[in-house]
Write a protein that binds this DNA or RNA. Structure first.
Lengths: 136, 136
DNA sequence: CTAATTGCAAAAATTTTGCAGGACT
DNA sequence: AGTCCTGCAAAATTTTTGCAATTAG
């Protein structure tokens, strides 16, 4: 897969490169855990003890504006972020909250009751219990 | 449609009937706005000035345990609740947050990458702009 | 009478914001 | 140099919790 969260890519967008942002980019690159803001913060605070939530949220905000990250509303307890922005689908574990990717093409036609809406996107969300949780 | 949020139904589940709960039941009955806890609280505080969030959340909790209400993880800014629990799908407006029901049967087979998961449910979430917001 | 429920208020958890100082181009 | 970014702390939102008083069955 092509690297997208790179310095070059970032510079092209006219964004300033800071060590904190680079670390966030690096953390997100190819990340498939659908981290929350706190996950990102926790993952980086060792290397950047001064890292603040403001920076994490600010960077995520910028990345979302540039289309490099999507906010997920799948986990009702907190926002999760997905650096994989092409259309794909998800599974969420009702017990541990783990979110898995589902890379599949579902043939879905716009339903008639939404004919007056401007549909931008759709996604399928499966829910249930992940392999780790299903036998407990 | 059969009434489900009735006193009889509620009593059968062994739950105590209080005026507050009745008001919440009545508010939810046939509600298609996918209200948040605050929406419910606001809708009822005139009639029940002493109504508290504890009661709203507590009642929703109980209703969820009994399978009469589902928590939606569609609106990433807050939890929304749906008194319509049979399988159906949704559209959310990216601008105003309105959630519309989509009553359709999508033919979706469990994808291979989830073969080791215990899938309980799935739903399709469309997003975009509702009729009110799409031309602004 | 007993156990469940309410309301209040405090706390917890998550996200947003203002602003001064600092870093990037 | 000028603008954007960071970090801190405070605030705003949403949700949860403990507990005493009340109420339903």
């Amino acid at each position: 897969m092509e690297k997208r969260h790179t310095i070059e890519f970032y510079k092209k967008l006219g964004l300033k490169i800071t060590p904190q942002r680079l670390a966030i980019l690096e953390y997100l690159e190819n990340n498939r855990d659908h981290p929350s803001a706190e996950d990102i913060y926790n993952a980086l605070k060792d290397r950047f003890p001064s890292m603040s939530f403001a920076t994490v949220y600010n960077t995520l905000e910028v990345l979302m504006e540039k289309g490099l990250v999507k906010e997920l509303g799948i986990d009702s307890s907190k926002k999760r972020f997905d650096p994989v922005v092409h259309t794909h689908h998800h599974f969420i574990c009702k017990k541990c909250g783990r979110i898995l990717d589902v890379e599949r093409n579902f043939e879905i036609t716009i339903p008639p009751e939404l004919k007056d809406c401007d549909i931008v996107d759709f996604q399928v969300v499966f829910s249930g219990f992940c392999p780790n949780c299903k036998n407990k």
